[in-house]
Design a protein around this nucleic acid. Sequence first.
DNA 1: CCCCTGGGTAAGCGTTTGCTTACACAGACA
DNA 2: TGTCTGTGTAAGCAAACGCTTACCCAGGGG
Lengths: 186, 186
Amino acid sequence: MSRRGDAAATKAALLDAAARLFAERGFDRTTVRDIAAVAGVNQALLFRYFGSKDALFATVLASRGRELIEESPAEQLLCRMLLRLTGKTARPEDHPLYAALRSAHHDTAAAVVNQQLGEDFARVLRSLTDAPDAELRADLVLAWVVGIGVLRSMFAKEPLASADNRAVAELVLKATSVLLERVDRV
Amino acid sequence: MSRRGDAAATKAALLDAAARLFAERGFDRTTVRDIAAVAGVNQALLFRYFGSKDALFATVLASRGRELIEESPAEQLLCRMLLRLTGKTARPEDHPLYAALRSAHHDTAAAVVNQQLGEDFARVLRSLTDAPDAELRADLVLAWVVGIGVLRSMFAKEPLASADNRAVAELVLKATSVLLERVDRV
DNA sequence: CCCCTGGGTAAGCGTTTGCTTACACAGACA
DNA sequence: TGTCTGTGTAAGCAAACGCTTACCCAGGGG
């Protein structure tokens, strides 16, 4: 194995570059030539290892999608998610949620958002209330997180985009506690 | 005037078709050939009357953007906006907000969202509280509306997508009243 | 030694894109 | 009548796109 180059390293480089570019520009505005260039790799290798641009996109969402839901106690999940998505550290723009949001028309992206966010995130949120419409309430809180991400990263809406993420989390959690009575405040 | 055809009617047909397709598919996934076909018009006329696809997009957002903010008392604006964006009547999918959301990378779309929603919608919401961080609170409520639209129309997230719009409005308004004390409940 | 395998490369295929050009023709005005 | 202007049409251009093909070459096994 490993004659001249390293296939595993090449695949990883392509995956990294694709994750970054898809999150930054969305599926349509990202070209396979750009991905290969950022990865420092010949573009034909992209098709050798992943088959197609669509398949690469699906692989990105599948491999990084799990990070969406970190292992946290349910009561703190919302707070952590808010801080992570709006935090200035760790390049929140690379979050695969943004890749999905900027490529919403893509079937794979829609499916991943529905599965990852719906089956996991919303399920956790649902456990934070005893109301009969718990699922709808969870979806609404999820929608709030998504909307904040859209306005901040895609539209750079001020003052939200530059607001202190702890202040944002505090306000959102305060209002959210009306819908989910067991959510942890800041 | 009106030799063989009607230039004004042609322009209106193009504008209608473009508004519909941009809202449905976003800027990138909409081709000038599709717009011309839906309008029942030769595609060269699109460039004669609007100059470029970009300019047509800007014209769509400019001409229909004003509808975003209808003349309503401030206290009821949020409620009306929620009902309109989630209502089953009047094809809410044609709302120009969706055209902008599905084309978020586009500079014109980002500018329009910032102006229309920011300078108008958020300004109205801001008047509903006396808190010192009124602007941030208004942005957060705006983010909620946007997020609900994204999850419903772009991701078809259940149960939110099929939920009764009055139930949605009731929950959102209840939680929002924590941030904006003068908002009208359902 | 030669052949085979696996990783890497260059070139270009066919299609689609936004946009342009050259033209046809009906009516208004002289 | 003849010309000119405004409207509509057909054809196609240059570029960019996703993807494919043909090839190169380092190394291991016989």
